[in-house]
Computed example of a mutant assay.
Amino acid sequence: MHAALKRAARRRGIEAEADRIRDVFFRTEWAHQPPLVEDALGKQMLALLIQLEAACTATDDPAEAMEVAFPPHPDADLLLSFPGLGVQLAARALAAAGPGPAWS
């Protein structure tokens, strides 16, 4: 809290303001929802985390397949020689360029 107040250009009363903010926003009862609402929000958060996990898995699988499928391509060495291009980005660049003579 102190660092945030300093970043906001506070110079005086930082300790008192940090204590006030802590008491008002984090230690009072009104900062909470009724128990049923908090329980529902917790269940919603778990559902969102499950969706996030599924999305991460859905992107990891093609990425792993690309790591295996791209290096044997005839133009892989050329594309990987560019600074900053790894397997993932080089494969995307190749896909964006479209089929060329090496795609026979």
Rank of each mutant, 00 (worst) to 15 (best):
L80Y: 02
A69Y: 02
P83V: 11
G84E: 01
A55N: 11
L80K: 02
P83W: 05
I14D: 00
L85I: 04
G13L: 00
P71R: 04
R11N: 02
A63P: 07
L94C: 10
A55Y: 05
A65F: 03
L46K: 04
R20K: 04
R20E: 08
H32G: 11
L36M: 10
E53V: 03
M45C: 11
P99K: 10
R22I: 09
A55P: 01
L78R: 15
R20I: 04
G42Y: 00
G98M: 01
A55L: 12
D23Y: 13
A4Q: 15
L79F: 05
D77V: 09
W30L: 14
K6V: 12
D61A: 15
I50M: 04
P71H: 01
E17L: 13
E53Y: 05
G42R: 03
K43D: 11
A102G: 08
G13R: 04
A91D: 02
P72T: 00
H2T: 13
E53I: 06
R27P: 04
I21F: 05
R7C: 09
G84Y: 00
V68R: 09
A8M: 05
R27L: 07
A31C: 14
A58W: 05
P71F: 00
F82I: 14
H2N: 13
A55E: 07
A95N: 04
E64G: 09
A9M: 15
